[in-house]
Amino acid sequence: MIVAERKPMAEIIGMVKDCKKVLVLACRGCVTVCSAGGEREAEILSSLIRLGMKKEGKSVETTIGSLVRQCDREYIDEIDQWKGQYDAVVSTACGVGVNFISNLRKDTMVYPALNTTFFGGSSEQGEWTEQCAGCGDCILHLTGGLCPVARCAKSLMNGPCGGSVDGKCEIAKDVECVWQSIHDRLCSFDRSAQMEVITPIRDWSTAGHGGPRKTVRDDLTV
């Protein structure tokens, strides 16, 4: 899922300081699962916006809405049901949602309530860790299913580096060295020889270094 976390309240209050009516718009997709921008978090944020504005001597009316997702055209259209009830939208979706609303609603000012952080999974309750960098050229079949692009601090293609000690990365004692994990996992499948294969210099154009990425499926376009 896409993992995100709420922005500092001072930043959010700064966005809406001139608004009289705000639509706090939750997303029932990834950010609900990672407890950053679902309906519950939108309710909390609404209350904090009202309190924060009141502290600044201003009043603001908040409406809470939610969409199935904010990353599909058909769901964005549902914003019309709150027409006239807001000066601006504070979206608790990831950055994709904020962009989609901006793309599709030319007359709607939309502000991001979240910092979108990474593609990850819930490693334990209340904790999410980065697992994928969305680099566009997956090599997981060569690395035992563990991603060095996302999980190695240096995104090394030929690791581990000299900073790997006792299975931990040199950046912090609680960060695994994913190359140690890759080694251990390949060994467990009797594929340690894969560690000897030198991965050549990588073409990073698929990772966004070649500009914004786009996927077109001809079989789905009519």
Binding site: P8, M9, A10, I13, I44, L48, L51, G52, K55
Partner: peptide, 8 residues
């Protein structure tokens, strides 16, 4: 934590 973020 939220109150402290709001300066309270």
């Amino acid at each position: 934590a939220a109150l402290e973020e709001l300066g309270v």
